[in-house]
Design a protein around this nucleic acid. Structure first.
Length: 556
RNA sequence: GCGGAUAUGGUGAAGUGGUUAUCACCUGAGGUUUCCAACCUCAUGUCGUGGGUUCGAUUCCCGCUAUCCGCACCA
């Protein structure tokens, strides 16, 4: 593996474009920053990496795949915290049309205007009617969230609701929690995966495929009971891994040891780091260019308790390609609070708990007429009193001095059996940037060498993700070799999950080189001998070795 | 978003205020060729975009878009 450098990067991106792997989108219209196409070769590559990812996580045995819309109502992303974290609020002056940041308009009125919610801001603006900095008018339109999420209207005209294109797939897993919980017969732990597009309106996309405005994500949300210590088999990973912990130190140790030492704070996070590593290596990431880095508490996303990034070294330096975050109960709690729906799991106690209840409550028939609108508050107060309280009792409630008499209250004494409790599951989330991974596996697979004095480049892609499984080459396009090759080609294409390319132009060496360049693992050559004995030569990309096999025994 | 540089066939490059813009590779057709980019003939295909200056602009100037490099931003 040669060094990464700008010249090599140029040759690699040139090849990827020329061969139709990845290329700038909408180029005939001048292009659009942060948007890329997977071309005729890249399309299948993306699909195979995606499918390999799905298969890999489903092999855990308690994982389901779901698919949610990319168009997401405002309230969902407001509840998740994305509106606040990802957006500025803008409002337009009705006089001159100039857009201003809503929090800037009320800066003088509120000390922390940038922390206010949309409703709080519009209330403040309505009350104080700040002047437009452009024209001095004081007539503001509705506040809209702008910036890092793509705004859209769900529905037409005035009846349309504000929405966004999702910035991550995760929220769909949280809003579908009850359905997934039922699917798993209400038993933790379980996980849901989703692959699909995510959108972020980046201010300035850079570095090719690394920062995109529309990108392929793949996320797992794994729901666990925080009170049950997870048991994971770390013996799968014997080799030490490079870890950069948040105290800044780089250490090399096995995942098992890192979990035992507390460098990795949660065993499930550690386990998924191992599972992530297996996936990355299986699609062709070079293990010596992989490390895990723990987020500093200051850079942690708004929802995370602990987070490890898988970083991959390539032509753009170390790039984070996977984030494995312990999100705690943040998301489910947030959606619960916003909707009033229960997003919890039931935990049955080993032994039912016997709870002695001994206290006071109000007698509604007497306390209601006596305290009228304050009766509810009085009830709350009385139920909080210790069992040895005595009445009458004076209390100030909401500015009113009240006398609570014995006739207003009742003693409550009973024994209850409590069999279990509802709790908010915790979530461990491995989130993958598929495009970044595809970029790096191409970057790592791209090998430049020399062949009989000439520059020679090829992709050493693993067979599971190679965009083309095999090319079929008639040595000459005559004497029936072409017909036989076409027949083999069509037969291979009709097989499940096999994709063959027929190539008959140029010398045989040139065709091998073409196949190598996009990482085709196998070439089948049909020659004169094939016509008489039904055999072909099977050539391996990496070794160049050729073996003669019967057409009926092709290993596909 | 700010500053700098750049934009010529599919790719990589050269070049010019004036008729038909050059080269290599690539691609296609034919020939040749009995397994690793061979050769011959022919062919297809380009001045990012909009405006200005000019008799005439791919070339000079300006805007836009995109790309690259800093800075800033970044789950």
């Amino acid at each position: 593996m040669e060094e990464f450098n700008t010249e090599r990067l140029g040759r690699l991106t040139g090849m990827l474009k020329r061969r139709g792997v990845i290329l700038p989108a909408f180029e005939i219209h001048g292009g659009a920053a942060g948007l890329y196409d997977f071309g005729p070769v890249g399309g299948r590559l993306r699909n195979r990496v995606n499918q390999t990812w799905i298969d890999h996580w489903q092999s855990l045995g308690n994982i389901v795949e779901i698919s949610c819309p990319t168009i997401t109502p405002y309230s969902v992303l407001e509840a998740s915290g994305h509106v606040g974290e990802f957006s500025d609020y803008l409002t337009e002056c009705s006089e001159c049309g100039e857009a201003s940041r809503a929090d800037h308009l009320v800066e003088d009125i509120h000390p922390n205007a940038d922390t206010l919610s949309k409703d709080e801001l519009s209330k403040l603006i309505e009350e104080h009617n700040p002047q437009c900095p452009a024209c001095g008018a004081s007539d503001w339109g509705e506040i809209e969230a702008q910036n890092l999420m793509f705004n859209t209207k769900i529905g037409a005209g005035l009846s349309g609701r504000q929405g966004f294109l999702r910035p991550e797939t995760a929220q769909g897993m949280f809003t579908s929690f009850t359905s997934i919980y039922r699917h798993f017969r209400e038993r933790l732990p379980f996980g849901a995966i989703q692959t699909g597009k995510g959108y972020r309106n980046e201010i300035s996309p850079r570095q090719g495929m690394i920062r995109l405005r529309e990108f392929n994500m793949a996320e797992l949300e794994y729901f666990i009971d925080p009170e049950i210590a997870p048991i994971h088999d770390f013996s799968l990973w014997k080799n030490p891994v490079t870890l950069i912990a948040d105290d800044g130190g780089e250490v090399v140790m096995t995942l098992e040891k890192a979990v035992d030492n507390g460098v990795i704070r949660h065993p499930t996070v550690g386990y998924f780091m191992g599972w992530t590593m297996d996936f990355l290596l299986s699609v062709g990431i070079n293990p010596s260019f992989l490390r895990f880095r723990q987020h500093e508490s200051t850079e942690m996303a708004h929802y995370a308790q602990d987070c490890w990034d898988a970083e991959i070294l390539g032509s753009y330096g170390w790039i984070e390609c996977v984030g494995i975050a312990h999100r705690g109960c943040y998301d489910l709690t947030a959606h619960e609070e916003a909707t009033g729906q229960r997003l919890r799991a039931w935990r049955t106690f080993d032994e039912p708990k016997v709870v002695e209840i001994d206290g006071w409550t109000t007698d509604g028939a007497k306390a209601g007429p006596a305290f009228r609108s304050l009766a509810g508050k009085v009830n709350q107060f009385v139920e909080g009193l210790p069992s040895d309280s005595s009445f009458p009792l004076s209390q100030n409630i909401e500015g009113t001095d009240l006398q609570i008499l014995p006739e207003h209250v009742k003693r409550v004494q009973r024994t209850e059996n409590v069999n279990g409790e509802w709790f908010v599951p915790h979530v461990v989330e491995p989130a993958f940037g598929i495009d970044r991974i595809i970029w790096h596996l191409l970057d790592h697979s791209y090998t430049e060498t020399e062949k009989s004095g000439e520059d020679y480049a090829y992709l050493s892609l693993p067979e599971v993700i190679a965009p083309v499984d095999v090319t079929v080459l008639p040595l000459f396009e005559k004497d029936g070799m072409d017909l036989l090759a076409q027949k083999i080609h069509r037969d291979l294409c009709s097989r499940k999950n096999i994709f063959s390319v027929y190539d008959a132009s140029g010398s045989i060496g040139k065709r091998y080189a073409r196949a190598d360049e996009i990482g085709v693992p196998w070439c089948i050559t049909v020659d004169h001998e094939s016509l008489s004995d039904n055999t072909v030569t099977l050539r391996n990309r990496d070794s160049g070795e050729q073996t003669r096999v019967s057409i009926d025994d092709l290993p596909f």
